[in-house]
């Protein structure tokens, strides 16, 4: 699924020390991985690399057996739209769209994900509604203004947006930091449920180590870089 080898990354071309150095990282298909590390350990940098926003300075990075370095910028954008769903920390919804429209947005820039939706449901909106219900957002909230939703509800919308069209890889970037412990756990369980259903690989990034026991596999970014 994900395969990193001898990857290093520098934000500036002539920076003396690379921001991120990873000798090897392999994440298998369907794994739910907890990636943690303190602030500044390179979590966001790694995510930007996995999502194909930035490319490695050296080394090889494959996602879904595709070497991202070999793609052009436009191809990487298309690749991300087709195969990766992203959940952000918070406030990650477009305020002028309803929850349903926000969810639909997840596959509106990708033909492949739309086709995937149509293979399971009649139209985007009903699939979006199904996902929102599955993630615990009641129907009466689906067409409400996003800004009136609570943080927890907004996270569910964001999660549904990442899952729509069943992308192979879900990247969650500290999605629970704004939630209390109880909500955090139930939200993560919902994430697992959906990921299993869609057979998606989940990379969950957080600095909160109390979540560690919930995951089958844990990767400490500091240790990972220390391997060099």
């Amino acid at each position: 699924m994900i395969n990193l080898e001898n990857v290093s990354f520098k934000w500036q071309k002539n920076a003396a020390i690379p921001t991120l150095v990873i000798k090897q990282l392999i994440i298998n298909n369907g794994e739910h991985v907890f990636l943690h590390g303190p602030s500044g350990s390179g979590k966001s940098t790694l995510l930007a690399l996995l999502a194909g926003i930035n490319i490695t300075t050296s080394g090889q990075l494959c996602v879904l057996n595709q070497d991202l370095n070999a793609l052009t910028n436009a191809q990487r954008d298309a690749f991300r739209a087709d195969h990766i769903g992203i959940i952000f920390q918070n406030f990650n919804l477009l305020p002028y769209l309803t929850p349903l429209e926000n969810v639909c947005l997840g596959c509106q820039f990708s033909k492949k994900r739309q086709q995937h939706v149509f293979s399971q449901a009649n139209d985007l909106v009903s699939e979006a509604a199904r996902l929102l219900n599955a993630l615990g957002l009641e129907s009466h909230l689906h067409n409400q203004n996003v800004a009136t939703l609570s943080i927890g509800q907004q996270q569910r919308v964001a999660a549904a947006r990442a899952f729509i069209g069943s992308p192979e890889l879900i990247i969650a970037d500290e999605p629970t930091s704004a939630l209390d412990t109880q909500n955090r756990e139930s939200f993560i369980k919902l994430l697992f449920e959906q990921a299993k259903k869609n057979n998606s690989t989940l990379v969950f990034v957080s600095h909160d180590e109390t979540l560690k026991p919930l995951f089958s596999r844990t990767i400490d970014l500091v240790n990972l870089q220390g391997d060099v």
């Binding site: 436009a74 954008d77 087709d82 992203i86 947005l105 820039f109």
Partner: peptide, 16 residues
């Protein structure tokens, strides 16, 4: 900028 970043994350290309 946040709005643009969100659109980017769901796969919108820069030209879009």
């Amino acid at each position: 900028r946040r709005e643009l970043a969100i659109l980017r994350s769901v796969g919108a290309r820069p030209w879009q």
